[in-house]
Each structure stands twice: as structure tokens, then as C-alpha cells.
Design a binder for these strands. Structure first.
Length: 463
RNA sequence: GGCGGCGUGGCCGAGUGGUUAGGCAGGGGCCUGCAAAGCCCCGUACUCCGGUUCGAAUCCGGACGCCGCCUCCA
């Protein structure tokens, strides 16, 4: 039984599935107008972990993440750089998937593009107009939020109170500042689609509601995204579904965001670090570990110090994998618990980790349990209880794999020169020529190796 | 103005009434030719003020501080 914080009810609730054993989830994806930043990295990691964990627990997960490939910002960028929107989209969608692959975020089952759904969006908007749920203005079609009785459900506030705080000035023909664009009329030089109500392009909120309902069906299980999408984006998606008489997502969940110097990292503040920059200096697995070590609903501060902390913890995990010769997991193929043997301490560990993750995805607790198990496996191995130790070590590896974190033991290519130095050093140590042995170690270290003396002689690896 | 979140040891970060969180850094020890890796031990924390209780980081009230949403944003 999976329990998850529900953003509408403000409490942890059991995930009541539409079809027992199957989870349909929709994660709002990126607008491909720029490089993905650490905030995108966090939400994709968080929901990748959720997906992997649900799968590990035996649920069949249908996972959809969209690509928003038509949007004001894409158009703006195209104009600025004298490129077509298609060229902008192609570049940044490519960058997006590269970044996801580098982070080890598994590809979604389906990744719909907004531009492939324009006909369906036009039909829905037309229906809203026919039923006077939407109205025309000079610059497009707007949705009349007053037509949805419980508008404000996700915001946690009634319509009136939202309206009172609205910061948008009433400068156009909108009936309420909260009414939102379903369709934006094209200005000269902008990409456009023909519609009975004017040539233009769809609004963002309409894209997601149409795609999620088309691919997952009415009453799908889980709709997620960053906390900043809760209102107005998710509110507005839901408003359209409700107005159209359709049952929408059964559960809503939102992750906290990435902070920089106490402020939210965002496009509008311009204080973001791209995932590309991160991967130039950091093992992307360290970022996953950093994300796993705090609860998904908490904000996280990403600084050189917290990154370095995660890197050192990660290197301890890798040493562990090296010691027990563990095979890296957590690739494109998602792990499933029943593919492994679980008995004794391994079974106990798995159950404790499951208790943590089934209860609102408490990854920091799960990670703590795994580090504890790591220590005990090392201690057992030191004491000579190698069979017991190996069993626990393997389960630690699988459970990290279930959260998408690969433990990587030694697999460095050793060149001829270095191999020769290793041989010489072993001979020197055999002969107890310590000065020579130390000199050869220095030489290896100068070549960038970390040198360790194991039971079978000199071991070298890359940092 | 309305709504919501947060304040834990040097740093990061779980924990909702009593029992070791965990990681990183630091100190001591074991092991090692010396190291590295690993193991053991140590710090004894919970913004402040009241209250409830045999007992509170955990519940209640209040204060202070920080952050966010109500506008595009993951």
C-alpha cells in the first residue's frame, strides 16, 4: 500500500488506484526554450524515484511526461536568435533528453508533444465557447473561471479570496483577472494553427489537460509537478476538465523546489545552474543522492558544499560496491523486487526500506537505513562473516537501484605503463623495499590514480 | 490583505510523547611497513516564552525569524 501526500487534502493519503495494481501518472514536463536547470533535475529525479519505487513494489506504472513545444518563450527566443521555433525546440528538446539520460532518469512511457494535440485542443476550446464557459477577446479565447464552482481547490482558497489578491491588472477584456488564455491569437510572424475562433496557438494549461486525459483516460491516478505548478497551472487544468464534465486526476502531488542563496531557483529570477554545467564538474549520481537525502516536499539548497557532501557519501558507496564486487543497477530497465531473493537480514532491510518509501516516499530515511546496513555489512566482512555480509551488500545495492542510484565499483581501464608500475610496486613490497614501494606509489598517484593495498597487492582506481 | 510551509548538534538532514536516525566534516582507537579502504568509540542538538503531561524536539497557546503561493516558472 502506497501512501502519498495529497496536495488537495493537505495530508498523506493512501493512493487509491483506478485499476488495482496499475498506476497512471502524469508529470508536467518542460517547455523546451532553454537549458534544463537544477530545478528540472529535481522534479524529474523525484518522480523518477517514485515511478521506480512503485514498479519495484510490483505496480505496473504508466508514466507520461509531456514536452511543451509551443509557447511564448520559445517564440521569443526564436525571434531573438533569428531562428524558427522548430529549430529552438529541436535544440532544447535534445538538450533535455541528454540531461535526463545523464541523470539516469528513465524515459517516460509516452512523451507527448503539445503541437501534436492542437486539433483536440481546438475542439475542446470550441466546446467551451459553445457552452459559454469561454469567451472571445481581441487577443484570444479566455476561460471563465467563475463557471467552475470549486475553482481554487488546489490553491486552497476560494475564488473570491484569490481574486482579491490578484496582482494582474485588468487591462484587457478579461472578465476576471483569474481567467486564463485557452487560445492566443497569432501576431504577424508567429507560428499559428487555423481555428474557427481565429488563427493562433493553444495556451499552456489546455495542452496538459488534453494530453493527460487522452493518454491516461478519465480519473487517472496521479498528477505531479513542481510546487509552483499547483496554482495556477494545475488549478486551470483541473478547471477545464471539470467544466468539460470529465473526471480528472485522483491525486495531486508536488515537489519542493531548489533554492539558491535562500531564494527559489527559477527562470524569472535568472539564478539557475543548468544541468549541463552541473555534469561538467559533478557526477550526476551525486545530485540524485543529494535529492534522495532530503524529503521531496522540502526545499533543497544546492551549494558547492552540499554537492561536495553528497559526492563524498557517493564515493563511500562506490567503495562499498568495489569491496563486494556489486554490479551497477538502475539503468533504463526498472528493478522489480520479485526478481531477487529476499531472506534473513536482506528481507528485514527491504521491509524497513519499504515502510519508509511507502509512507510518502521518505527517501532520506531509506537512505539512512541503507547506510546503516552498509556499515553492518562492512563490519561482518571485517569479522570474516563474508556470506552474511555479501547477502546484505547485494540487497543494499538492489535497494539503491530501486531508487535509481547506481553503485559503481572499479572498472577503470588500466594502461600498460600503470600496470607495469603496479607490478614493480608489488615486487618491491614483497621484498620489503618500502622506500621504493612508496616512490612507485607516488609515481602512480602522479598519474592520477588512487592507490590502495589490498589482500592481493596494489589496487589502483580513478578518483 | 488572503493562503501555505519552515526554524534540529560545525554543515546537510530524518524523526510527531519516553528507546542510536543517517551522511559529511572533526577528535580518539583498531587494522596497515606507512598509507588508503574498512571497523569501533566520542560530540549529547532540537529558535524563544508559557502551558498540558510522570515525561515534549514531538501536543496546545503566544512571540520572533526565514521562505513561498495569490503573475510566466519544475
Amino acid at each position: 500500500m502506497i501512501r502519498l501526500f495529497d496536495s488537495v487534502h493537505g495530508e498523506v493519503r493512501t493512493l487509491e488506484l483506478r485499476d488495482p495494481g496499475r498506476v497512471s501518472m502524469y508529470v508536467c514536463g518542460p517547455t523546451v526554450d532553454n537549458l534544463p536547470h537544477l530545478g528540472h533535475g529535481r522534479f524529474t529525479l523525484v518522480w523518477d524515484v517514485a515511478r521506480r519505487w512503485f514498479t519495484f513494489q510490483g505496480l505496473v506504472v504508466h508514466f507520461v511526461t509531456n514536452i511543451t513545444d509551443i509557447d511564448d518563450k520559445i517564440i521569443t527566443r526564436g525571434h531573438q536568435e533569428d531562428r524558427t521555433t522548430g529549430e529552438v525546440v529541436t535544440e532544447y528538446e535534445g538538450r533535455w533528453w541528454d540531461a535526463m539520460d545523464a541523470l539516469g532518469v528513465a524515459r517516460p512511457d509516452v512523451a507527448p508533444h503539445a503541437t501534436n494535440y492542437v486539433d483536440e485542443m481546438i475542439a475542446l476550446i470550441g466546446w467551451f465557447l459553445d457552452n459559454e464557459i469561454a469567451y472571445l477577446t481581441n487577443d484570444g479565447v479566455y476561460f471563465d473561471v467563475s463557471r467552475v464552482p470549486d475553482y481554487g481547490l488546489l490553491a486552497g482558497q476560494p475564488l473570491d479570496s484569490l481574486r482579491a489578491g490578484a496582482r494582474v491588472e485588468i487591462i484587457d477584456q478579461k472578465r476576471s483577472p483569474l481567467d486564463f488564455a485557452l487560445w492566443k491569437n497569432a501576431k504577424p510572424g508567429e507560428p499559428k494553427w487555423s481555428a474557427p475562433f481565429g488563427d493562433g496557438r493553444p495556451g499552456w494549461h489546455t495542452e496538459c489537460v488534453v494530453m493527460s486525459l487522452d493518454l491516461l483516460g478519465e480519473g487517472f491516478d496521479l498528477h505531479t509537478g513542481g510546487l509552483d505548478l499547483k496554482f495556477p497551472h494545475h488549478e486551470n487544468e483541473r478547471a477545464q476538465a471539470v467544466a468539460a464534465g470529465k473526471e480528472f486526476s485522483r491525486h495531486w502531488a508536488h515537489n519542493g523546489w531548489v533554492m539558491v542563496g535562500g531564494e527559489k531557483m527559477s527562470k524569472s529570477l535568472g539564478n539557475f545552474t543548468s544541468l549541463t554545467e552541473l555534469s561538467e564538474t559533478t557526477d550526476p549520481r551525486a545530485y540524485r543522492l543529494l535529492v534522495l537525502r532530503s524529503h521531496y516536499r522540502s526545499p533543497i539548497e544546492v551549494t558547492p558544499s552540499t554537492i561536495a557532501d553528497a559526492e563524498r557519501a557517493l564515493s563511500r558507496l562506490d567503495s562499498f560496491a568495489r569491496r563486494f564486487d556489486l554490479a551497477p543497477l538502475a539503468g533504463a530497465q526498472l528493478e522489480v523486487a520479485t526478481n531477487y531473493q529476499w531472506e534473513g537480514r536482506a528481507l528485514e532491510l527491504r521491509q524497513r526500506v519499504a515502510d519508509a518509501l511507502d509512507e510518502d516516499l521518505n527517501t532520506p530515511l531509506a537512505v539512512a537505513l541503507l547506510f546503516e546496513a552498509l556499515g553492518s555489512a562492512n563490519a561482518d566482512a571485517d569479522a570474516g562473516a563474508s556470506h552474511e555480509a555479501l547477502q546484505v551488500a547485494q540487497s543494499v545495492n538492489v535497494l539503491f537501484g530501486a531508487m535509481g542510484l547506481s553503485l559503481v565499483g572499479a572498472s577503470d581501464e588500466i594502461d600498460v605503463t600503470s600496470a607495469h608500475l603496479v607490478g614493480e610496486r608489488d615486487a618491491a613490497r614483497e621484498a620489503k623495499e618500502w622506500a621504493e614501494a612508496d616512490r612507485l606509489r607516488s609515481e602512480l598517484m602522479a598519474l592520477g590514480w588512487i592507490v590502495e593495498d589490498g589482500a592481493e597487492g596494489t589496487l589502483i582506481r580513478r578518483p
